[in-house]
Design a protein around this nucleic acid. Structure first.
Lengths: 337, 337
DNA sequence: TGTTAGCACTCTGGCGTTAAGAGTGCTAAA
DNA sequence: TTTAGCACTCTTAACGCCAGAGTGCTAACA
């Protein structure tokens, strides 16, 4: 049914459509070297490919464009392999240079590289620190009745927050708070810092209750901040330049990126291509390539590109694979944090 | 030349055009209660207003639309005054609620309020801490060879940075660094922390040079971070929904907001309306309303709205004025930080 | 049986024409 | 100075027409 020639023709159509963006007709394909049959033969094959759902016709007298099933088959089986040149690797490596090679920083740099090189939007998902534990809570006086709360997690994430209190704290109060935090929160998982725990903490401060309650509330809010999933987009404006993507839908997507990309929390295979009309990823005419980044057997984040369905998969997928590979190598060198 | 009736007609045209976005003709104006002359008379006046540069005609048989001079006159003299209702004030007040009423947080909240209520983009400019001094530099160990640097300025700004060193520091080294920073950087202005100073600092570490150099470099980078002007946009996507604004120009503007808004560093009067074709603000068909926020006689930041030229100035300007006023009141209550 | 040439058919997109509608400027009268 | 009337201009939508691109089908061919 799907003999080799038909696959070759499908590949040629997808290639051509990715390049030009206009529906491709039988004649254009027949001119491609390597395909040595007449346009009529190709028309027959195209009709069959359309019947099988791999192609569609915008209107009767137009050429064909791939359906997402067509893209899927192309990506899975037909795509030409495109090994990266040394220069390309060099360019990608340069992007990964960071003086603090934490997984988060590397993934975000890689994302920026992808946005720039592909002229698409890119996604950097850092692993949520919600399952890590609190390493340190500090309070630092920084002005009249102003204090900075600082929280550091075992995954190396840091957040700070300014608190303004009603009164200045005495050194004794500060010491008490520092010790109290160390004793009660060090090693506690971010996720378990619920309202209840906080109330218990507040209740147990005894004589210090009035003065320290706002600080403890602040600590709780810091922990909340760690609970949100951490998705960064880059190169949003690249997609605005594309006329084939609906700007209203795009604006909505940007606004609700966390919900729109929540499927990333589920498990997906190491590298996955999602199409806008297919699964959870809802954006017309668009597709997303995502790659999971692992550290040992744990997920350290994810990295990907969002663009029009007619994406240059053959070029972009190796980019993502290479970046993923490099990041994995760089962070696996690290000791456990 | 510009008698009262002509001004009334101009105001009516601007009002109408702001509402509808379509060129307004003489007949529409003649129907407005309060204008009791015929369409023919209005046509004569419109011709004169056009000659004076306040109106223009997209084409011969269309109505008139205001030029930016027309808008300018409208904003300065003609606009109906629109006192805020108590409910509106309440809504705005709610947005200003923040548990840490620093100027920065207030301005950013106000900006978000404006974006939401006006369906435009909004600008929050925090006063750059580049002229403030360093209050505190801390280093906190946070894992194997990992250290968090923390810098706090006299303006209450905080930045942190993770450093990875080649070796773990001993307690002695940590203490030395903490003291060294306190002695040499406390009270030093952000702006004066140049390459030279850093090299001097490095040179004077003596035996600790090798181990501490990366940390000092990190401190320098933190200070650099404070030097950038701090402009936040909100509600960008609101402008994408507007068809009368060029998306390509908009994308470019978002990408280069710092350069595009550098005129905000210059002095401008308390509340200023800028038009896209007029002064420094270059965005076709757009305008910007900016209000300076003061603390005493110093500038504490700025707040504003960016939208299409046909902005509902009569409603938005009171919003901005009220927010500015409230923020000024809230931060002037503060002691000097 | 698979491939190809030929041909009639369909649909789009550009172009010119037409007609309706909106709004104007001008003129002459009030 | 204001107004009514009117001819004029310009846009917009609708319509028909035509060229071009691409197809599907048929019949011949290897």
């Amino acid at each position: 049914m799907l003999d080799e020639r038909k696959l070759k023709i499908l590949a040629a159509i997808v290639d051509e459509y990715i390049m030009t963006g206009i529906p491709v007709g039988s004649k254009a394909i027949s001119n491609i070297p390597g395909i040595n049959v007449s346009a009529a033969t190709i028309r027959n094959d195209m009709a069959m490919l359309e019947q099988l759902g791999y192609l569609e016709q915008p209107h009767t007298s137009a050429g064909r464009i791939p359906t997402f099933e067509g893209y899927r088959l192309y990506v899975d089986k037909l795509m030409p392999s495109y090994p990266l040149s040394e220069e390309e690797k060099k360019v990608l490596d340069d992007f990964l240079e960071t003086d603090v090679p934490t997984a988060d920083a590397l993934i975000q740099n890689a994302s920026k590289a992808l946005a720039e090189l592909t002229h698409c939007a890119s996604v950097a998902k850092n692993v949520s620190p919600q399952f890590s534990v609190i390493t340190k809570v500090e309070v630092i006086p920084t002005g009249k009745r102003m204090y900075v709360l600082l929280m550091i997690t075992s995954s190396g994430n840091i957040k700070n927050k300014v608190c303004r209190l009603e009164f200045d704290l005495t050194n004794e109060q500060l010491d008490f708070f520092a010790n109290y935090m160390a004793e009660n929160l060090q090693g506690v998982s971010i996720d378990s810092l619920s309202e209840d725990t906080v109330e218990k903490l507040v209740a147990a401060t005894g004589a210090y209750m009035v003065t320290l309650t706002p600080l403890i509330k602040g600590v709780c809010e810091l922990a909340e901040g760690f609970r949100d999933s951490d998705i960064h987009l880059s190169g949003e404006k690249n997609l605005l330049a594309r006329p084939d993507i609906d700007h209203a839908q795009l604006a909505h997507f940007f606004e609700h990126k966390n919900e729109a990309l929540k499927m990333l929390d589920g498990s997906f295979s190491d590298l996955q291509v999602m199409f806008g009309e297919d699964g959870d990823f809802v954006m017309k005419n668009s597709s997303m390539i995502m790659s999971k980044i692992k550290k040992g057997d744990k997920t350290a984040g994810a990295l990907g590109v969002i663009g029009p369905m007619r994406l240059d998969y053959a070029k972009i997928i190796p980019y993502i694979e290479y970046l993923t590979e490099r990041i994995t190598a760089l962070i696996s060198e690290d000791d456990e944090i």
